[in-house]
């Protein structure tokens, strides 16, 4: 029986990953790196300063205040 396109794509990736040698190490490095970046650094250390403001107007006002509050 002929496989569907979805099955063929799945098998393409599945067999590809299965046959990898050094690729497994590389994938492990990629996943660990992405975890550290998105679940440690981004979540706990890199909150956007403007995210405390809920509307674009509030964000604009904050930046305008920052830019114009210097001694000009």
């Amino acid at each position: 029986m002929e496989k569907s396109i979805v099955q063929r794509i799945w098998l393409f990736y599945y067999e590809g990953f299965k046959s990898m040698t050094i690729g497994k190490t590389l994938w492990a490095i990629i996943l660990i790196k992405l975890f550290i970046m998105f679940f440690v650094l981004k979540l706990f250390f890199f909150k956007s300063e403007l995210s405390v403001y809920s509307t674009p107007e509030e964000k604009s006002n904050h930046v305008i205040e920052q830019l114009t509050s210097t001694d000009n």
Binding site: L34, M37, F46, E49, K59
Partner: peptide
């Protein structure tokens, strides 16, 4: 791969005036 995304994190956190501007 994705090491450049860290730069985008920094835009929002360290350089928010710039990012907005």
């Amino acid at each position: 791969v994705a090491t450049g995304i860290i730069l985008e994190f920094q835009f929002g956190t360290n350089w928010s005036n710039y990012s907005w501007f």
